[in-house]
């Protein structure tokens, strides 16, 4: 899984985006005990996806201080589990020093190559790439942002709807909410057209799904 490796954005808007995971997440009792301790430590430091079942292993933080505190406590606990942190490299390296460890191995993204003209605009890509498995559709992000623009739904509700698609729950809905303003502005100014459907009979649609949890409106 490299699903947290290609999160797009600027240094400024990536400062509130940290993903922490540990492997192995399954194994004999001695390992699962360690994973549970890892989870207890991460939960204590306010991840934005706290309501995960026991045995979960990926935590998202929207604040460096919380991530750093979790990392420090994990290092002190000497669990012996491998831990990976996704985020700004230089800041993660600083956090490692504070925690008394050091970056061991890194995985850089070298970007997207090939028919890049098929990619959505950067305002959408910064949101969709927070689900590395690409389950948050660029068309969904566009349509929800357009509804936010029309005051049909709140940005927070729109971002929670996006989050639901990401089954690993590493989609940072807090950051998405903060990115929503620039996307709404891009749509408003005509700089961001809706993604086109695949070959076949497709028409633009004007969607009104109720995001209150009551289900679809027919």
């Amino acid at each position: 899984m490299t699903h947290s490796n290609h999160r797009q954005g600027t240094r400024e808007n990536l400062k509130n985006d940290w993903v922490m995971l540990s492997l192995p997440y399954r194994g004999p009792p001695a390992i699962t005990e360690k994973v549970e301790r890892y989870n207890q430590i991460c939960r204590r430091h306010h991840p934005i996806n706290p309501d995960r079942p026991r045995g979960w292993y990926i935590w998202v933080f929207d604040d460096r201080e919380n991530m750093e505190a979790a990392l420090k406590e994990l290092a002190e606990a000497e669990l012996g589990l491998s831990v990976v942190v996704s985020g700004l490299f230089d800041e993660v390296a600083e956090c490692c020093r504070t925690a008394g460890t050091r970056a061991h191995t890194v995985n850089h993204s070298l970007g997207f190559w090939g028919r890049t003209e098929k990619l959505p605009p950067p305002e959408i890509l910064e949101i969709t790439t927070m689900c590395g498995h690409a389950l948050v559709a660029s068309s969904l992000v566009w349509h929800l942002a357009d509804r936010v623009r029309r005051n049909d739904v709140s940005a927070a509700a729109a971002c929670q709807e996006m989050r639901k698609m990401c089954i690993c729950d590493i989609f940072n809905h807090v950051r998405a909410d903060e990115l929503m303003g620039q996307l709404v502005e891009a749509i408003e100014e005509g700089r961001c057209a809706p993604p086109q459907p695949s070959p076949g009979a497709g028409l633009p649609c004007n969607l009104t799904t109720d995001l209150s949890g009551e289900g679809a409106t027919p």
């Binding site: 985006d17 990976v84 996704s86 490299f89 050091r102 970056a103 890194v106 995985n107």
Partner: peptide, 9 residues
Amino acid sequence: SIAGKTNVG
């Protein structure tokens, strides 16, 4: 990239 994955050792 300026951001990505770090195995923190």
